[in-house]
Amino acid sequence: MELINTCRPDDAATAYSTSLHWLLSVGYRHRPRQGCTCTEQNCPVPGAHPRPDSPVYVGPELIVQELEQSPGAGIIAWTTRFDALVLPRSVGLATMAALDQIAQVPCIVTDDAVTLLVLPATGRFARTFHPDLEVRSGRSNWIALPPSHGTRWDTPPWVPQTSTPVALLHGVDVGCRLGGPSSPESSSELAGSNPLPPTTTPSE
């Protein structure tokens, strides 16, 4: 099978849309030596945050067309098919070291943060495990996906060498490992974590 190339915006958007059924939008553009098209002089995430007027796409064709016309634009995923746990980079990397021993947890890394993906509507259960955790959940929240400027996958969201989505863990199973080894407070079994449910693409 051909590997998914998340360095190419059109390939990445197609994979996120068709294989993972994520709702996507096109973000602001990052311009080398000119910064973000949002015009904020010191934008903290240039080319990696949503435009207020950007439509939400449920299939790959239109978003690929827009990306081809918008070099340097970010790819934005709305947190409907997953919850995102955003952590300071040092805490997130320590968490990944613990999680790598037990499961493949999708993980996006930036210079300052690590974002872990868990089952939708379960991120809130991880809040009590670390004071610096930010939970993003629901249609009004978002994350920037690779190859948006400054982002990369540490652990991609599909089984290696395939386009099959990995089984996301419950927020508790990830939360109890935030910052390091497992805590005895976990209330759910890893072996019982379920894969993403089937999704149908809504009609326009």
Rank of each mutant, 00 (worst) to 15 (best):
D112V: 10
L145V: 08
P156T: 14
S90D: 15
T201P: 00
T18Q: 15
S186V: 15
D111L: 06
E66Y: 13
L67Y: 07
S140K: 13
G72K: 10
R124Q: 04
C36E: 02
T80K: 00
P202W: 13
G123M: 03
H170K: 12
Q101P: 01
S19L: 07
A12G: 06
L178N: 00
G180C: 08
P131G: 01
R177E: 12
G150F: 05
G47W: 08
M96K: 08
N5G: 04
L20A: 03
Q101R: 13
G179N: 12
G179E: 07
E40A: 11
L20D: 07
V26K: 08
P55M: 07
S193H: 10
L87T: 05
T162N: 10
P46T: 08
D132K: 13
D10L: 08
A191Y: 00
S183F: 09
C107R: 15
T115S: 08
G150I: 02
Q101K: 14
P71F: 07
H130K: 03
F82S: 06
L93Y: 06
P52D: 12
D173Q: 15
A13W: 00
L67K: 05
C107S: 13
R29A: 11
G175T: 14
L3R: 12
D154N: 13
E134T: 08
I4R: 10
L85Y: 10
T115F: 00
V172Q: 09
N5M: 07
V58L: 07
P181L: 00
E185N: 12
T200L: 13
P50R: 04
L3H: 09
V159S: 03
N141G: 07
C107F: 09
V105H: 00
Q69S: 14
T151R: 11
C176A: 15
G150D: 09
W142Q: 10
T79W: 05
S70Q: 13
S54A: 15
L67S: 09
A13P: 13
D100G: 05
E204D: 14
P197K: 05
E204L: 09
I108G: 00
I75C: 03
G150H: 03
Q41M: 06
D83A: 01
T200N: 06
Q41P: 02
S90N: 12
R33F: 09
D111E: 14
G138N: 07
T115G: 02
V64R: 14
